[in-house]
């Protein structure tokens, strides 16, 4: 069953089309990823889905409820980790979560238990009585994920959950997110501009300039690039080149000491080639296309992490700066 349904969604800010006629569905119990560069329209889409923003046109449904007409029902079904932190830094971790439990009308006799459960789940139980302002970025992120789970939502939105985290914490957070659908029966809708993070998704929509330009599983998307690249080094490259061309029909090129060719399902192709060519093979290596290659092929530009994280740093800086006033 599709738990999120979006049809012809459009959002204009003055003349700018932040979201430009997108449609997609998300199956219950899966991880769906929105992948795109800064300003692609990811957060805008989430804000519409979570009833904070009205669309210019189009329809959005969550768990069968219209986000515009039945916001209360939609809000009960969702949990969110926003791109920018939304914790109260002057309260403790525990107080932030209890606040949430009351706000979502968690039954009285379950409040404390549920809060403690999620705190243990994200490994913050020991720190529950510390003020949030003493937490590191990664701890705050985990706390926000925990908070989003207290009321047992059917859909959890994660808007760039790993923003500003070091590679180690990012990896840990993803391990943890991967387990959510199984452990908490929740559908995940996440956004990121880190290509390799999108690999955990069951399905991905690549979004650029407010439009979905490709959609599918990571494997399917990578297929569109044309397959894997196989590099082979042999004792007699000239002879092998001829042989592969003749027997398999691949276009083989040469680069330094290696031959390389593009083929769909490189992993099953290699054993067969080795069997045929026989003795002379010195080394074989397989390069799988990345989602970055997919993005590159579709848009002619790369989503570069360096650029992306620089942008975030500027944002963080501006926010920190404004706070001082």
């Amino acid at each position: 069953m599709a738990i999120i349904k979006v049809e012809h969604l459009v959002k204009k800010f003055d003349n700018l089309s932040a979201v430009n006629n997108i449609s997609f569905e998300v199956e219950e119990g899966t991880i769906f990823g929105f992948l795109g560069p800064n300003g692609a329209g990811k957060t805008t889409t989430i804000n519409i889905l979570c009833t904070l923003l009205s669309p210019t046109s189009g329809w959005t449904f969550i768990a069968g409820h219209d986000c515009m007409k039945e916001p209360a029902e939609v809000r009960k079904s969702i949990g969110i980790v926003f791109q920018d932190t939304t914790l109260d830094k002057d309260l403790t971790a525990y107080e932030n979560l209890i606040f949430h439990a009351y706000l979502y009308n968690v039954p009285k006799n379950e409040r404390q238990e549920r809060v403690c459960d999620v705190l243990k789940f994200v490994d913050l139980f020991d720190r529950k009585d510390d003020l949030v302002k003493k937490f590191s970025g990664g701890m705050k992120r985990r706390l926000e994920v925990a908070r989003g789970l207290i009321h047992r939502p059917r859909v959890l939105f994660l808007d760039e959950p790993t923003l500003g985290l070091d590679p180690q914490s990012r990896a840990n957070l993803w391990e943890f997110i991967k387990e959510l659908p199984g452990k908490h029966h929740v559908t995940i809708f996440m956004t990121t501009h880190y290509m390799e993070e999108a690999e955990v998704c069951d399905r991905i929509a690549i979004i650029d300039n407010g439009k979905i330009i490709a959609m599918g599983s990571p494997a399917e998307l990578k297929m569109t690039v044309g397959g894997d690249i196989v590099y082979i080094r042999t004792t007699d490259n000239v002879k092998t080149k001829e042989e592969i061309k003749r027997l398999f029909g691949f276009d083989v090129s040469e680069k330094g000491e290696e031959l390389y060719l593009t083929c769909v399902m490189g992993d099953t192709c290699i054993p067969e080639m080795i069997r045929t060519i026989g003795e002379g093979v010195l080394s074989v290596r397989l390069q799988r296309p990345t989602l970055n290659d997919v993005f590159l092929k579709l848009t002619g530009k790369a989503i570069r992490e360096e650029e992306a994280s620089e942008g975030d740093n500027v944002k963080e800086y501006v926010r920190a700066h404004r706070r001082r006033h």
Binding site: L52, K76, T86, D88, K89, L103, Y104, R322
Partner: peptide, 15 residues
Amino acid sequence: KEFGFMKEILVAPVS
């Protein structure tokens, strides 16, 4: 609003 906590309140199923 400025520090984002308002969003936590606004997305809750509370009138």
